[in-house]
């Protein structure tokens, strides 16, 4: 090779060219795929919301969503109303499900989305939530009925440890929440993921506790905190339901 790769000028030129090439390659990939990716994310959100109110294709033990080809129509069928709560004001907004909770948390005057679903004549109030796990964000959707009893839950995470914290999205864990009350002595307290609550089969539905996952203490604590703080934000809304 004729080029002297040890020269400083060559090193700097190489670095500059490399950064420009790699930078434009990544920018190109990102901008071409952006639309497709955001559609995928929107469909996923719809699937998650529907999952929480029990609209899914679950088999005996695993989580199966409505296929993406149907999710748009199913979402329009089952989700009858979408609300945004800001400063205690409840307004209807058909695009409330597109609200980015991460951005709202950072704002001084957050908008709280809430979805109302109807299935077989029964009403579901679906609350989206976001919190912190061990490594990164965790989030979820929980549906409750007008008695403040959980009807379904879906949790997901960005980077919890596979096999440990990542199991919050396993069916056996999420199903444990169904039937748990989020209320205790008239106040919204959420549900705590508890170790050693002497109720591993989850027979006591009014203890505000579900059995924790082994090896996932911090993810579990994060999930408990997410449930109580997020649900409390909707306390006045839930109270207005029981007043009706």
């Amino acid at each position: 090779m004729a080029i002297n790769t040890e020269k400083n000028s060559y090193t700097i030129a190489f670095a500059v060219v490399m950064v420009v090439i790699v930078g434009s390659l990544l920018a190109f990939v990102s901008s071409t795929l952006k639309e497709q990716i955001s559609t995928n994310e929107r469909f996923e959100k719809m699937q998650n919301i529907l999952y929480a109110m029990g609209v899914n294709n679950n088999d005996e033990s695993s989580v199966v969503f409505i296929p993406t080809s149907e999710v748009q129509t199913q979402f329009e069928t089952y989700i009858t109303q979408q609300f945004v709560i800001q400063n205690g004001q409840v307004t209807e907004d058909p695009e409330a499900y597109l609200i980015d909770l991460k951005r709202e948390e950072a704002s001084e005057n957050p908008r709280l989305p809430l979805f109302v679903g109807e299935k077989d004549g029964k009403k579901f109030y679906i609350v989206p939530m976001r919190g912190k796990g061990l490594w990164d964000a965790i989030w979820g959707f929980v549906s409750v009925d007008d008695q403040k009893v959980i009807q379904g839950a879906y949790f997901d995470h960005k980077g919890e440890t596979p096999g440990l914290g990542a199991n919050i999205k396993m069916r056996y864990f999420m199903d444990d929440f169904i039937g748990e009350s989020i209320e205790k002595n008239g106040a919204i307290v959420g549900v705590t993921v508890a170790k050693g609550n002497n109720d591993p089969v989850n027979e006591d539905k009014y203890d505000n506790e579900v059995d924790a996952l082994a090896g996932a203490t911090i993810t579990g604590n994060g999930l408990s905190a997410m449930l109580s703080t997020s649900l409390k934000k909707y306390e006045s809304f839930f109270n207005s339901l029981s007043a009706q």
Partner: peptide, 12 residues
């Protein structure tokens, strides 16, 4: 391999 400057090879 023949054009990578050895000083910044790890970065590359």
């Amino acid at each position: 391999r023949n054009i990578i400057p050895s000083k910044i090879r790890i970065i590359v």
